[in-house]
């Protein structure tokens, strides 16, 4: 599945998007938005430590319980403050 990154999430990862493997290689594949947070947090602890990080699935705001599939487009949207 594709994960699009905005704001500081892009800076933390160092790329505007990420591809999450959907086949097993020993690791557990994230099946919900909440599991995706934990999954990404293992590689990028700073993502998990953000006080607020909105996650959208197919352009709709999603709760942590929302199920995700390999064909979903995910967006990580942190707050931005500049003005």
């Amino acid at each position: 599945m594709t994960v699009l990154l905005f704001g500081v999430a892009k800076d933390i990862v160092g790329s505007p998007s990420l591809s999450i493997p959907t086949t097993t290689n020993g690791k557990r594949i994230p099946r919900t938005v909440g599991e995706l947070r934990t999954f990404l947090g293992k590689s990028y602890p700073e993502l998990e430590q953000l006080s607020s990080l909105a996650i959208a699935v197919n352009n709709a705001y999603a709760q942590d319980t929302k199920e995700i599939n390999s064909y979903d487009e995910i967006a990580l949207i942190p707050p931005v403050s500049g003005g």
């Binding site: 704001g7 500081v8 800076d11 430590q49 953000l50 006080s51 607020s52 909105a54 705001y61 949207i77 942190p78 707050p79 931005v80 403050s81 500049g82 003005g83």
Partner: peptide, 20 residues
């Protein structure tokens, strides 16, 4: 409803650090 809690200091860069 989008961002329930304010970020802690230095979590998110500001314009002074990041440029604009």
């Amino acid at each position: 409803c989008v961002f329930p809690d304010p970020p802690k200091a230095r979590e998110i860069p500001n314009c002074n650090e990041n440029g604009i």
